[in-house]
Design a protein around this nucleic acid. Sequence first.
DNA 1: CGGGGGCTGTTACAAAGCGTTACAAAAAGG
DNA 2: CCTTTTTGTAACGCTTTGTAACAGCCCCCG
Lengths: 240, 240
Amino acid sequence: MTDTAPHILVVDDDREIRDLLARFLTRHNYRVTTARDGVEMFRALDDWKLDLVILDLMLPGEDGLSLCRRLRANSDLPVIMLTAVGEETDRIIGLEMGADDYLPKPFNPRELLARMKAVLRRAQGLPRLREAENSGALRFAGWTLDGATRALTAPDGRDVELSAGEYELLSAFLDHPRRVLSRDQLLDLARGRTAAPFDRSIDIQVSRLRRKIEEDPKEPRLIKTVRGGGYMFTAEVERT
Amino acid sequence: MTDTAPHILVVDDDREIRDLLARFLTRHNYRVTTARDGVEMFRALDDWKLDLVILDLMLPGEDGLSLCRRLRANSDLPVIMLTAVGEETDRIIGLEMGADDYLPKPFNPRELLARMKAVLRRAQGLPRLREAENSGALRFAGWTLDGATRALTAPDGRDVELSAGEYELLSAFLDHPRRVLSRDQLLDLARGRTAAPFDRSIDIQVSRLRRKIEEDPKEPRLIKTVRGGGYMFTAEVERT
DNA sequence: CGGGGGCTGTTACAAAGCGTTACAAAAAGG
DNA sequence: CCTTTTTGTAACGCTTTGTAACAGCCCCCG
């Protein structure tokens, strides 16, 4: 699995963001290399066979837009731009910027994953559309979570309403079944933020999610509590 | 598709505008050449077989109006003039300027595309080539939005009336499908202005648009709300 | 075996975000 | 000008989400 995993290059001058993305993407089974500016970026391009570049708009020296253009000029490597919120953004978005996709900061990590998948799929010329939408469905223990419509269907066929947060949390679990996920990890995966001390928002979200998907919330079978560790999704997950 | 795409010449002394327009138009499948003044313009006219000239009014050396007249004198190449905001504009419009169309700066990019299409169609008499953006029609989820007539046709064939604002908003969504667009971005894309604090005009416009295009506005499937993020148009958009 | 002390589950409540209605202002079109 | 349409503001209520608080549970220790 690892040697077929797409190799992502993250170009950002903010060390914190580089690290965060590197950790996040590695967790999601991508290979990751980072660069802090255009020079390092082109060096990495020589050293590796890359699949996707995630490029910050604001960079020391040559800016991301210019780098994106140069990249585009001599390769068809897909590019996702990160744009800081603020003045320039609107205009750049209004007039296309030559990237395959863009994401305004601060972004939802799950959103980034979705865009990456879309861009990679497009770049590989693989069939999209219906197949892609279908492949967005996840099945577990008789339940079905449709990635396109965000609809959750119970084993008996009834639809269960999920709030956005509940959906993200459940998705995070389904992406990492049979693995203990700490509250920090879950918060990162589902919300893209880091936990403050005494932050128990995940506990509550878990509680609410259990109420909807567990037969007996008092004795959860799908989302187990790992005392001192976090939570673990125990069911088999199948992509259809 | 590239060798039948109309070839546009952008004449403006502002490098930023040249670049932005070049990227934007290229993105919309036009071929683009730029010039910064009359000299470069006539050189480009010799070098290429062009389809349309976008000409800034204010230029170093010979101004746009004069260039437009000379262009008109010895060719039937269509011209769209860009006029800076201000006092002169009205007079220039009042006087004949010889251009096929004009656009006051700052302009809405979509507006420019629309004018370009109109001018090109007029100049060619026939839609001899597939227009670069498309023939003006966008399809999504069974709906059709005709860019030329601004008519929106429902899947069942009935026409739905859209106000100008609703049309612009829908267009903005259709230009950026499957992307989370913040209220700021939408306001800029659809109205060309920036949001004031507590500005919720977009919410209302979205609500009104939903009432017209969503089967069940209570549970929107086309325009999704992204809490804390904005809105996202979720359907696949096809240019026909 | 009984009692802490730290974790966790849950409830109640408050804050924020969003949808919508009603109405006023503005624009468009006689 | 006056009417009609469109657009924006204000306001109300619902939903979602997070914080606080408390109750229960588990495990270790004496």
